[in-house]
Design a binder for these strands. Sequence first.
RNA 1: GCCCCCGUAGCUCAGCUGGAUAGAGCGCCGGCCUUCUAAGCCGGAUGUCGCAGGUUCGAAUCCUGCCGGGGGUACCA
Length: 548
Amino acid sequence: MTPLDQLRAAIADAAIALGQQATAEEPFVATLERPKRPEFGDYSTNAAMLLAPKLKKPPREIAVALGEQLEQRLGESLKSFEVAGPGFLNIFLADHWHRDTLAYVLDQGEGFGGGSASGAPERILVEFVSANPTGPLTAAGGRHAAYGDALARMLSFAGHDVQREYYINDHGSQIAKLGASIVARSRGEDVPEGGYEGAYVSELALQLVDATDPEPDSDALAEQGVAIIVDGIRETLHGFRVDFDTWFSERSLHQDENGGAISAAYKALEAGGATFASDDATWLRTTAYGDDKDRVLRRSNGEDTYFASDIAYHLDKRARGFQRLIDVWGADHHGYVARMKAAFTALGDDPDALEIVIMQFVNIIEHGERASMSKRRGDFITLSDLISEIGVDAARFLMLQRSHDSTVDLDLDLAREQSSENPVYYVQYAHARIVSVLTKADVARVGEATALLPLPAVALEPAERALIHKLLSFSSEVDDAVTRRAPHRIAAYALELAQEFTAFYRDCQIVGVQPVETESFRLGLAEASRRVIACALGLLAVDAPDVM
RNA sequence: GCCCCCGUAGCUCAGCUGGAUAGAGCGCCGGCCUUCUAAGCCGGAUGUCGCAGGUUCGAAUCCUGCCGGGGGUACCA
C-alpha cells in the first residue's frame, strides 16, 4: 500500500465514521490531489463536498469533523488541517510522513512505480509502424515507432506480457508498383504513373537488375526490393532503439502453407452469416455491427481487399493467444476502425479486445513551410536523416512529448538549431549531476545511507518535501500514462521531476552537510531521484547518462 | 453531407474520467560561476483557454450548436 493509498483509506474511513455508506463494491472515493498553491497544503480532498448532500450539513462543517477524524487516524503523520473555500479539506503532513514516504520509495527499489497490473497481467500484442515496405521509414514513421515502443515498455513495466509486431504489407498493388518502378529505372526510364520516384528505387534497380536481361521479372524484383527495404527499416529502427519481436508478412496470409489464412477467415465469417454476394463481389455486412456501410472483402475481379487480409491477420493474432491487441494506426486510417471492430463482432469475438490508437500526423516544417511527405514522390525526410540531424535521444523525446492525438509540427531548422536545448538534455543533466554528487560522496556511503531504515529523523526543507511528493507521484503518473496509452505524460513527468531535483540541489547542500544524519537523508533522496529519473527515461528509451 | 483529431502565452505544446489566482519549453528583458556539473539558477513581461448557450456549489475540462485548421469518407493500401 503506497503512502497515498493509506491517506485515501484514512479519508474513506473518516467519511464512514461520519455516516457515509460504503461497501466493498461501492467504496467511497474522494479526490486526493496536490493543490496548485503550497498554502493549500500537501494534499487537498473534496470529500466533505461529496458528503454534504447525504449528511445534509454544510460542507465546511463536515470538513472540520473530517479533519478531526483524520487527526485520530494519522497521528504524528498529520501536522495540521484547514478548511478552505466551499469545503475543501487541506491536509498538511508532518516531516515524519515525508521521511516515511522516502523510505517507502527507497524500499521499493528499482521496481518503484511499476507492477500495477501484476495482479491481472494480460498478454498484449502491440502492432505499430507497419509502414509500407516501399521505401525507407519517414520521420512520421519515427513517431509511430517511438510511441509504440514506449507504450510497450510502459505496459511491461506495469506487469503485462507484451510483444511488439510489425505487419509488412508485402502484397498487393503498392508492391506491384514498386516492382514496375524498379524495372523502369533499370532501363533509365521514368517510373510509371503512380510509381515510386525516390532515388532509392534507382539504387535498387542497379543492385538487383541484370542489365542484359531484356524482360526483368517485376514480381521477383518487387520481392527482392521489399526484402532489402525491410532490412533497412529494421536497421533504422534498431538504431532508434526499437526492436520488434515479430515481423509478420501479409503475403504469408495468402499462401497455402500457412493454412490458407484468408480462406479460413472467409469460412469463419460465413459461419457467422455476415457475408453476402452482390455485383460479383463478396461483402461483409459490417452495418449490422455499427459501421456506416457494408464493406467489400473480395472484389469482382477475384482479388481480396486489404480488409480481408487484415481480418485474417487479426484472427491470427488472436489465435496466437493474445488477450488484447493494440494497433497503432495513422490518422488517415481512422475510417477503418469501425469496420475492423465490426469484423471482430461478426467473428463472434469481443471488439473490446481490439484497441486502436489513432496517431495524428507529423508535419515537417522547413524554411517556414510544410514540407511534403510523399513516399511515392520520394521527397520525404527519412527517420535516419532525422536521427543523424538531432540524435536518438532528442528525436525520441521530441516525438514522445506530445499527445498521440495532437498533430505535431516538427520544424527541422528549429530542431537542428535547438537540439542542444531540447528538454531531454535538462532531464539527462539532472541525472548526470546526481551521479556526480553521489560519486563524490562515495558509493559505499550512499549504499549505507539508502539502507538506513527508518531514515534519520531530521527536519526537512521545503524543497525536500516537494521532491518527495514528486517522487511518490511517479506510481500514479505511470498508471495514468498506461491506462490512457499516453507516454507523453511520462516525458512531462520526467521534466517536472528534474526541475524538483534541481530546486533541491540548489537549496540543500548534500555532501558534507552537518549533521551527518542530514547528509544521509539527502543522499537517500538524491539516490531515489536518480533511480526514478533513470526509470522514467528508460520507459521512453532515452539514455540516462552518468556524465555529460 | 457524415465521421475522427485539433483550436490554451509571440512560437511549439501540456493540462481536458470537473475544483481554489491556467502551466512548461523555446523566444524576449535584467541579474548570477572562489562552494556538490552554468547543458544550470534567480527575477521580469506575455492569455477574451476559438465563439455562443447549457449542466454544476464550481467548467480550459462535461453536453449542444456554430466558426476555423487537419484528416477520412473506394470493389486503393
